[in-house]
Amino acid sequence: MTSTAAENTRAPETEDGAERKIVAFFCRECAYAAADATGNARVSLPTTIRSVLVPCTGRVSPLHLLKALADGADGVYVAGCLEGQCHYREGNLHALDRIEFSRALLESVGVEPERVQMFTMSAADSPKFVAAARKMHETISALPPLKRK
């Protein structure tokens, strides 16, 4: 199974030649709800984004972020609750710490830190969700594909 997964990690080459892969971790309470609302409103979003549901952004560890980049993603972001409104008090703040840690780590090995980002939003704030997704897409599209050894 893992081998199948590995075969599929190469980003598909489309006509314009550069379809990137962005892994997005959404918290169940806010960001995933905002994602659902966005879908229900039929808002068009870039196809580059691959969402992963987590109970709380506090579940996301640097391992998940870095492994995503190492295994084919060009960018990765975490979207959670607004500051002070985490359903588990400070999960989103923990996530932010880990993101900053991961960015510093990437920078030290010459990878653009903006490939890893954090966004916060309320469950009802679909526009903010869309803005985050588009911003991430633009940021990553402007960067060259991530080179791996």
């Binding site: 997964a5 892994v23 987590v54 109970p55 506090g58 579940r59 998940h64 588990y88 923990h94």
Partner: peptide
């Protein structure tokens, strides 16, 4: 919430339904 699982330095702590293997397989 899984905060503990993400913080655990030795990998002993895990969250049912959201183990590192489950999440990474998807990622």
């Amino acid at each position: 919430c899984g905060i503990c699982a993400a913080e655990c330095p030795s990998g002993a702590m895990t969250l049912g339904g959201y183990s590192d293997e489950e999440i990474l397989a998807e990622v």
